[in-house]
Nucleic acid binder design. Structure first.
Lengths: 250, 250
DNA sequence: TGAATTCAGGATGTATACATAAATAGCCTT
DNA sequence: AAGGCTATTTATGTATACATCCTGAATTCA
């Protein structure tokens, strides 16, 4: 096999899923394009059974769309779709923050979140921010959002947030890298980090409404980044799937 | 085949999915119970390939849970899980209502919603409400919520709401029938219908915040119904899957 | 010349056989 | 007698062969 040793133990289904996802997100498979099982078999070098399972999983991940007569095609997204997905994530994260506040997250459970906050502070402090720092920020930011989500202590909600965030352009860190090339970069980072600070404070003080509101607003920072990136056409190569968005239906 | 003619044309996968879902919701398959593929094959009389697809679909529908070592088990829900799912649906429907209001749903597109509202009015008017009227209410209420969701004109949001509502105990009409046996039945119905009226009014007047708030509150009526039904142990046979809820983990 | 029909190619849907990994029960050892 | 190891059984993971349906192109008829 040409795969690395670390990938030898995972199932063919997962392998196919990863390979196909990469090809979709990298733009090698274009939106609207039908993707036949045999084609997927050739791409992934596994047989039809695991390929089919991978396709089904990618469908409910939201990257593929079922064709009524059978089979799948690569899903096409409009700019509006992406903005709505971001708003959707913000709403769900807002609910998570409110749950965390209302249900009284213990000081102990808030500890990791605060540590994460401090780490982010370190990264944001430098000006200008290096590319490496941006990359580290993406990782740490994802961790912050994951910790916050778990603080809701609500399995159904966590599940939904994970589902929405699975789409890379709706995920909390989806456009942070795209923003790195913008002149407003550092400013946006500082504002985002202030949101983080506020939500932790609100949860600590049991201010549910405030915690919810700030997370909603926080997601709109991502929406702003997306719009800026699209207008400036900067760093779109970081998310090739967005290179050519579908125009609205009508 | 022993199936009815109307079911002869649908795929084996869907048939298996329906059969298994019924057995889960009717309580014949108990929460926590492992459900092997061969067992599912015996139940559904189809081969392993479509059975496996059905199991995967039921997993991301939320009724099954994947076992790390492979295979699936029937998911167990706590009362808290269900209440959270209801709150989650309310939040999403609130967002849908706000979208509809902010984006200016046309008078033309509001028409079906208003008709539905009038039909519901007719049903609610009688006192006491007959069981048939309750049943009709369930259908019409589901239609109202579906129309409202679509009014958001946001495919990603519609998708998420459909996903959440797929769990019968989180769906808009999940506990309406359970409520029919309660003395407070008619009163609750009237209040719910008033919520419906308000959300339509709010959307029409472009009052986004109001539309959102009332849909959130509206979902808490379902939460109230659930609690009442559980306390009174009334009509739990209508949702046998709830007959014995899992106790919280700790 | 246009449209409809038929035929061919290829796609998905399904069943099953085989490989491999996990779980369990029994036996052996300590 | 208790614990661990091994063997057996049963589960899932995978590949492939077969059946059926859809799709598209070519040909024929009006």
């Amino acid at each position: 096999m040409s795969e690395r040793d670390s990938e030898r133990s995972i199932s063919q289904t997962v392998r196919a899923q990863l390979a196909l996802r990469d090809m979709i997100l990298s733009g090698q498979l274009r939106p609207g394009e039908r993707i036949s099982e045999l084609q997927a078999v050739e791409i992934t070098s596994v047989s039809r059974t695991p390929v089919r399972l991978a396709l089904v999983r990618l469908e409910d991940e939201g990257l593929l769309q079922a064709i009524p007569s059978g089979g799948f095609m690569v899903k096409a997204f409009t700019e509006r779709d992406i903005l709505d997905s971001i708003e959707l994530r913000g709403t769900l994260e807002g609910l998570a923050a409110r749950f965390a506040a209302e249900r009284g997250a213990s000081a102990r459970s808030l500890e990791p979140l605060k540590e994460c906050l401090a780490d982010l502070d370190q990264l944001v402090r430098q000006d200008p921010v290096s590319v490496e720092a941006f990359s580290a920020y993406v990782t740490m930011n994802a961790r912050f959002h994951a910790l916050l989500t778990e603080l809701s202590a609500s399995p159904p909600l966590i599940r939904q947030i994970d589902r929405v965030s699975a789409l890379p352009f709706a995920s909390p860190s989806g456009f942070v890298m795209a923003q790195s090339a913008l002149p407003e970069a550092h400013q946006i980072l500082l504002i985002g980090q202030d949101h983080h600070r506020i939500v932790v404070d609100a949860i600590e003080n049991r201010e549910g409404a405030r915690a919810e509101a700030i997370m909603r607003e926080h997601s709109r920072l991502a929406a702003r980044n997306l719009r800026l990136a699209l207008r400036n056409r900067t760093h779109l190569d970081l998310l090739p799937a967005l290179a050519r968005l579908q125009s609205p239906a009508e």
